[in-house]
Amino acid sequence: MTTVAVPPAAVESLAPRRKAKRPFGPASIVKYALAILFLLIVLMPLYVLIVTSFKSGGDIGVTSQWNLPEHWTTASWVKAWSSLRDSFFRTFQLAIPVAVISSLIGAANGFVLSRWRFPGADVVFTLILFGMFIPYQAVMIPLREIVTTLGIPPGIPTLVFVHCIYGIPICTLIFRNYYATTVPEELVEAARVDGAGLLRTFGWIILPISIPGFVVTIIWQFTSAWNDYLFAIFLSNTRNGPITIALNALAGAQSPDYAASMAGALITSLPTLIVYVLLGRWFIGGLMAGSVKS
């Protein structure tokens, strides 16, 4: 039993082993009926989001939420976009650097931990991993105190820094397991015989074959930075924070504009959904990697 299946391998293993070509019997009718029923349940909230976001005026109401819009209008999309636009772009400035920087750190750490069995490496690794599970409330109060005492302004740069730090454990884990299972010992050994130092080996031999690992960590970190609310609410505000804060202000209002809230929720989810649809296989890889063991 190896710790954490290498994410890409886990994804490959999701592929069906054989095609279903049996004739339709009663069992398979039940099977398809269930599959479709669950499909509808999962899509139900999405349906409400989409139809409501195109409604206007009296069309919008709790009791009529399942109806299609009587008059389709994009007015609410325009309204939601105007109140989310700034934070939407700010969130890219947050999520992209976080994804890239923490992946690089993770790759370096993962490489070291997968090859150099220094004494106590296991303990160190476990201590790093624990950082992945802590409830961030347990560090948030002093964290904010440090940030304000040092006079660091709240907002995106602060959040980038913080997300990179707390992203180290998961990225290290993903890369360690990637290297442990896909990079042959001989490759590293050959480089050493050639006289390459650790950094040279890492930079010239390991990094170029790490792209699948990077795709996984980048997607993972991008998604979690994009969707984060807790760090955002502590270390930024509606004026300089990411989109989750702005959406909460838009949708958490008294008698909120439901159509605009729903359009806003869709706008907020769009980038991560696009990443998910385009890079779905690796996205799942990231999810799998989140499990310490599989």
Partner: peptide
Amino acid sequence: KNVLASRLQQSD
């Protein structure tokens, strides 16, 4: 008041 408390504690 939540947002305000945050901003005051953030010195912003």
